[in-house]
Structures are given as structure tokens and as C-alpha cells.
Design a protein around this nucleic acid. Structure first.
Length: 604
RNA sequence: GCCAGCGUAGCUCAGUGGCAGAGCAAUCCUCUUGUAAGGGAUAGGUCGUGAGUUCGACUCUCACCGCUGGCUCCA
């Protein structure tokens, strides 16, 4: 259920800004080399929204140098350096790049592939900005084509992405063909910041963290808990409809459980340290599966019992690397919308497809269409077969069944070689929020390996013992990541059923306070989350505050409403509906709530 | 875990080797309001924690904790 970076090369090929951004990166390289003559360039490709530049340099750079570097880059652009391309032999290339071991390594790889070595030449040898760089291109033909650019951040990056290698320095930047396009992009980044779940979570008081509780351990406030529990209620009701049973299991388990599952050798470092109880190691559970398997095994099972769909909102704990923690999106205590489906091998494909359909139902209720989500198919990297447990035959069988189910579901999918779990191939759902940020929200896996490890048997119709198949699925992922996603997707303006506060009653003056409280009591009776804002403040400032809190409904009550026994409604969209009776308001809003409508005011 | 940056009031953020600051929020007073901030007063801090340098540290140095942007990882 975690995020995985995929190659974006194909997307870039069609991006007309790609050569320009690639050129901007070379301009950065030239500017940096002038300031730091000992700098060794490693690489610098264009990426989806810009480019980065990796280099090896003893001196540590920080964003403080950006102003100075950008100034030189502007000079290089103004110098209108022509850019030309040449193919040379590996020998010639080695002579040019003799002081750069990274380039020499690269040249060797190119030569080994039997390809020609390609270089790009910036300016003429007389120019102080003259540069020749090993590069496959493409580039624009002149540095002046880079009309607008900006350096964004400094980062560390392992050489060739391998943590055993040296850590290089990396500068991220972006470039466009006009100043307006650059500014539009920066404005988009700013907008994304405003919808960041951490910012909104603080403003709306949905969750918090405390140093003394620990990193990556979120605390859900009263308002955030409402969202959590609404989702949980929804999941429980839905799963009941879809034929699930519910179980509950403890937060810890004995080491033997995880030895059998095979998790311990793999994930020991990623689990909280064990505690010694009566001379045995107990671990905080990092996954629910083995506990569920024990429930399955607690009784002899018949083919008549299958499929058995066993669900639990189980909290698991994972000792994620401190550097990877990220708001609610990557935490160490995770409340999973987890279930395991025990079925016969013959039922597995159908059950897998049903699980995919369940995802579809959940996402569509939240207004997400098939354009907004896709499946990333995690397959084994066959060159690293030792990472994966179980017979290759089982894997191939699971993969084939999953593939057919994914095809039948009609959900877009793409393969991710090396993305499989150790016990089987997996399909992750990547979902795009309304600002276009994509998150790996949920996962469905068909597991033929774990049932063998645990000897999860059932008695077949012919009386023989057979091993079942297990489907792991978590359509709503974890509360943490799912709520984080919803915050960003809705920008805090939750649909009524999820809104932690649904109605705010704003009396215009103290004379109508009694009427306001009377309306409030009626709403509470209808289980609407309502409050009276009786603060000593103006109506305008209360509206402003409620508007910032993205409150769906404001009821503005004054003398008129009291006389007519009505309410005046202000929706958070700014729309105004006056002269509605309290009963009518309750009828419409409870309908909106119960139908999980995304609209605020519709009379069904 | 690694690289870089950051940590000042509940929130957003100024600030300086020599008395700790603003706006919003809070509390109280005033206003009695008709659709996005009425006015005034008060209170609020071990400047993330610990150690060091210094006559003096919120400021400089180191360690730790936490957060952020990346890298690696992600059952």
C-alpha cells in the first residue's frame, strides 16, 4: 500500500519542454562549475516538472547559493550560447572526461552496449562558459531558448540510487518557455501547499503529533476522530453487505508467529523491538495476516465455509525509517482497513475480481472516476528471484489469475517490475487527488504462499485436504493515509457525511439566542453535528471563521427567522437559501448526509 | 538510516552576543450587529532538550529530540 516511484520516461518523450529543461540543467552545471572548479558532474536529466542535477563536491552546498547561481545562469542564457551535437569514439570521450570517474564509468557502459558516444557542445572554446558534456540529449539549439527557470531545492541522492554508494548532492529546478508559464507552475505549487493535509489538519484541528509520544505516531483529535469513525462505520456496513465477517485480534504476537509467516527474517529491522515476556520475544504486529490465519486454523474448515472473508480494522506498527515519515501519509502506527479472504483456488480469481469491484464502489462514492485511479501491478524482478518465497509455479499461477481479474475489471493498470511482495505479486491502487497528486492508497494481493507456510487447509468435497488461497485487501488503506488523502482531495471541504462539524448556527444578536438553541436541539435530535456560535463577536466575523473551517452549513438567525420559525441558510459555497423551515432543513440535510452526496443541497 | 534546511506565545511569523516582539486566537469589557475581520483592555514564553564557549547565549559550538525537502526503504 505504499508509494512507488515509477519511470516517467515515456511521458517525458512527449513533453515539448523536455529539451528546454534538459538545457536548463546544463546551464546550471556550467554555472556551478564556474563557482566550484572541483565539482564533478554525475548526471542531470529532465523530470516530470523540471530537472535535477547530480554532482560530487566536497563542499556542501545549500539553497543560500541559489541567488548567485541563478544570476550566472541568466548570464549564460543572455550569452545565447549555440548548442551543437557530435558523436565521438569512446577513446576521444575518455580523453575529454579523464578527470571524472563517473563519466568514465558511463562511457564504459555506453561502449559495452556498442553505442556511439554522444556529446553536446555549449558555446565556442573562446567563451568563458564553453562546455562539452557527455549527453544523449536532446537539447534546444541555443541557451537563449530557456526563457524562465528557477532553482527549487537541494537534496542528497545516492549514486545510481544505491544506498551502498556515495551520497551525491542534487539540485532540483524547473524551467519553462515563458515567465508566465513558470509563474503559473509556481502558483500551482503554492496551491498544493495550501491543500497539504498537514496544513489543513492543523487549521481544522484534525490530528496532532507530540514529541513525547514519538515520531510517526499521530494523535487523532475529537474532530479528526469523527472522520475516522465515519469511514470505519462505512467500511463495516459495506463489508457486512459484501459478505464479510469481523474479527478482533491483539496488537502483539509471539516471535514464532512471524517466523512461520516468514515476515521476521524480512522485516525484523522494520518492526518495533521485541519485548521479553516470560523468556520469549513478543513483537508489536506489523501486519494482521498471521493473526487472522490463526483464527482460520482454530477450526477445521470445509469447502462449504469458503470463501471466508475475515475483516478487522487492525492497528499495526512499523518502525519506518525516521527520514521517510511524512505527515499522515507515512506513519508508524497504522489502522488498516484490512481483510483476508480464504477461498479455494478455483474461487480465487472471482474473489479477486470482487475485491477490485469493492474498490470501485468505495472510490466512486467519493467522486473518484476510473480516470482518477489506476492499478500498479507489482511483479517479481526475476533477476532477484531469491527475494521471493515459494515456487515459481505458484507465483505464475497467482499472477495469471490476478491479470485476468484486472482485465475484467476494466481498471487501468501498469506493471511495476520488482514491486511484488515477498510472498506474491500485488496490485496497488494509486489514486489521484483533485490537485493531481497521486498516492498509493490501497492494495489487493493474491497469496498462494502463506497458506502453505501456515498449512491453511480445508476439506474438499471429495474428503481430501486442500490448501486454500488467501486474498489480502485493504481498499481504504489505513485511516492515516486515507484521511490524509481525503483532506487533500477535498481541500478540507468534506462532504456532509464526513464533515466533523456540519452546521453552525449564528445568531445575529443576543435576543435570538433562545431560538438558536431551540434550532440546535432539533438538529442534535436528528444527529446532525451542530453548534451555536454564541461568542461575543459580530455575525460577519463568525461567518468568516466558519467559512475558513469549510463548514457545510451556516444558519443565520435573526428576528425575521424567529418570527417565521424558519432558518436562513448559507452554504459554504456562498449560496444563500432563505425562509426554510427547520423540519425541511433537517429533511434535506439528513438525506444529503445519508446518501453520502457530494452536493450540499439537493432534494432527492 | 543518509544529504540539506528548519525549531521563538495555541496559530502565522518578526527579532538580536546585553530587558522577549507583532497579528490572529484566548479571557474580560464595550458594541447588538442581516451574510468573509466593530472597538478597547488583559493574560500568554525555561526562545525544542541537554551540554559547552563567554562577564553575559534565544543568538556562537556540539550532541540529542522533532519537523521539512530529497535519496534509500516500504509486509
Amino acid at each position: 500500500m505504499q508509494q512507488k516511484k515509477e519511470k516517467v520516461i515515456d511521458k517525458l518523450k512527449n513533453d515539448p519542454l523536455m529539451p528546454l529543461r534538459h538545457t536548463a540543467e546544463h546551464i546550471l552545471h556550467i554555472a556551478m562549475s564556474l563557482k566550484y572548479p572541483s565539482l564533478k558532474k554525475v548526471m542531470g536529466p529532465p523530470i516530470e516538472d523540471g530537472f535535477y542535477f547530480d554532482f560530487d563536491l566536497d563542499e556542501k552546498v545549500s539553497p543560500e547559493i541559489f541567488d548567485e547561481i541563478e544570476k550566472v545562469m541568466h548570464e549564460i542564457i543572455e550569452a545565447k550560447l549555440p548548442i551543437s551535437h557530435k558523436e565521438i569514439t569512446a577513446e576521444e570521450a575518455r580523453a575529454i572526461f579523464k578527470d571524472n570517474k563517473y563519466k568514465l564509468e558511463n562511457i564504459q557502459e555506453i561502449a559495452d552496449r556498442g553505442e556511439k558516444v554522444s556529446v553536446y557542445i555549449f558555446g565556442s572554446p573562446e567563451s568563458k562558459y564553453y562546455d562539452v558534456d557527455l549527453c544523449a540529449g536532446p537539447h534546444v539549439d541555443n541557451t537563449s531558448k530557456v526563457k524562465a527557470f528557477k532553482l527549487l531545492s537541494v537534496a542528497g541522492a545516492y549514486y545510481k540510487g544505491d544506498e551502498k554508494n556515495k551520497m551525491l548532492q542534487r539540485i532540483y529546478g524547473t524551467a519553462f518557455d515563458s515567465q508566465e508559464a513558470l509563474e503559473a507552475h509556481l502558483a500551482l505549487l503554492e496551491e498544493a501547499k495550501n491543500r497539504d493535509h498537514r496544513k489543513i489538519g492543523k487549521e481544522m484541528d484534525l490530528f496532532t503529533f507530540a514529541d513525547d509520544v514519538g515520531a510517526g505516531l499521530p494523535l487523532w483529535t475529537a474532530k479528526g476522530t469523527i472522520i475516522r469513525e465515519e469511514i470505519e462505520k462505512w467500511a463495516k456496513e459495506t463489508e457486512e453487505e459484501w459478505g464479510y465477517v469481523r474479527v478482533a485480534t491483539p496488537h502483539i504476537g509471539k516471535h514464532t508467529l512471524y517466523e512461520t509467516s516468514g515476515h521476521l527474517p524480512y522485516y525484523k529491522d522494520d518492526m518495533y523491538s521485541p519485548m521479553d515476556i516470560d523468556g520469549e520475544d513478543y513483537y508489536l504486529k506489523g501486519m494482521n495476516c498471521p493473526h487472522h490465519h490463526m483464527i482460520y486454523k482454530s477450526q477445521p474448515r470445509s469447502y462449504r465455509d469458503l470463501p471466508m472473508r475475515m475483516a478487522e480494522y487492525g492497528t499495526v506498527y512499523r518502525y519506518e525509517q525516521s527520514g521517510s515519515l511524512f505527515g499522515l501519509m507515512r506513519v508508524r502506527s497504522i489502522a488498516q482497513n484490512d481483510a483476508h479472504i480464504y477461498c479455494t483456488l478455483e474461487q480465487a480469481e472471482e474473489e479477486f475480481l470482487i475485491s477490485l469491484k469493492l474498490h470501485e464502489y468505495y472510490y466512486e462514492t467519493l467522486g473518484l472516476t476510473k480516470d482518477d485511479y489506476r492499478i500498479v501491478f507489482g511483479l517479481p524482478d526475476e533477476t532477484k528471484r531469491e527475494k521471493y518465497h515459494g515456487d515459481k509455479e505458484l507465483w505464475d499461477e497467482a499472477e495469471a489469475m490476478m491479470k485476468r481479474a484486472v482485465e475484467k475489471s476494466g481498471i487501468r493498470s501498469s506493471d511495476d517490475i520488482g514491486g511484488a511482495a515477498f510472498y506474491g505479486p500485488k496490485t496497488d491502487f494509486n489514486v489521484k487527488s483533485s490537485i493531481g497528486r497521486e498516492f498509493a492508497i490501497s492494495t489487493v494481493q493474491l497469496d498462494l504462499y502463506m497458506p502453505q507456510r501456515f498449512n491453511l487447509e480445508y476439506t474438499a468435497a471429495d474428503g481430501s485436504k486442500k490448501i486454500c488461497a488467501v486474498i489480502h485487501r485493504a481498499p481504504l488503506g489505513s485511516h492515516e493515509r486515507f484521511v490524509g488523502f481525503l483532506i487533500e482531495h477535498f481541500g478540507g471541504a468534506f462532504p456532509v457525511w464526513l464533515a466533523p462539524e456540519q452546521v453552525e448556527i449564528i445568531p445575529i444578536n443576543e435576543k435570538v439566542l433562545d431560538y438558536a438553541n431551540e434550532v440546535h436541539r432539533s438538529l442534535r435530535k436528528a444527529k446532525l453535528r451542530s453548534k451555536v456560535n454564541d461568542r461575543d463577536d459580530t455575525m460577519q466575523s463568525k461567518i468568516r471563521e466558519a467559512q475558513h473551517q469549510k463548514l457545510p452549513y451556516m444558519l443565520i438567525l435573526g428576528g425575521r427567522e424567529q418570527e417565521q420559525n424558519t432558518v436562513s441558510i448559507r452554504l459554504r459555497t456562498g449560496e444563500q437559501i432563505n425562509g426554510v423551515s427547520v423540519e425541511e432543513f433537517i429533511r434535506i440535510v439528513t438525506n444529503v448526509r445519508d446518501s453520502k452526496s457530494l452536493a450540499l443541497w439537493e432534494d432527492k
